[in-house]
Amino acid sequence: MTAGQPLAETAPILPLELDRVSFEAGGRRLIEEITLTFEAGPRTLILGPNGAGKSLLLRLCHGLLRPTTGRVIWRGPGAALGPGGPTRRQAMVFQRPVMLRRSAAANVAYALSVNGVRWKDRRALVGEALERVGLARLAERPARVLSAGEQQRLALARAWALQPEVLFLDEPTANLDPAASHAVERIINGFHQAGTKIVMTTHELGQARRLADEVLFLHWGRLVERSPADSFFTQPRTPEADAFVRGELLWPCAPPPEEA
């Protein structure tokens, strides 16, 4: 990329490998021995009914949670470099973004400052990121008075400025109206085209159809199925995924095996 973008040119941290990762909280096993690898490239969507463990899986990947057993390993050559290692090369957008009590532009600049981007270089990156998500006009507006859709776009701008190699998104459109959701999806595709690996959860089938290259289907904390998007939606391999794709709610009728 262009000069003055110190976060860009380093060795990749992908692939990301999960090795028999489990997570327990309050004596309940919420993620059940998941083993999988995320490669650069395809947009990965994590699907599943509420309570399937989608958000937990994302937090385990991002490093916000430590697995109870198993390991989360960044296999790329860039992962070994520098303090903080891979944390600096991945970003996450939450269902409800937390905005600092300062202007929209200052929120983006804060993310850059935390990641060690020098003051001189921040201005241009902030401007570009806000431009990217269509918030340039609102740059000086306090972030907390922006609408929900604008705040989510600002969260994406914050991530964009960091130029992450991997972007995790946790149901980023769950609180938004259709127009705002559409804008967010467009920005996500912008990330994808710029070469950022997208890993996103959703419980919305329509959104998954629009965005997914591959699908991970979770149910009761287990990875039930992993398929390319085309085949997942047309001919799911497992009965659970089949029921989900046909719009039948899974969770009321199927208790988790170990509690049955």
Binding site: R88, A91, M92, A111, V114, R158
Partner: peptide, 18 residues
């Protein structure tokens, strides 16, 4: 703020000031 600040990479000192 915790998840958001940790996700952005803020250490405890930085989080405190923020």
């Amino acid at each position: 703020y915790e998840e958001q600040l940790r996700s952005l990479g803020a250490g405890p000192g930085r989080a405190m000031a923020t």
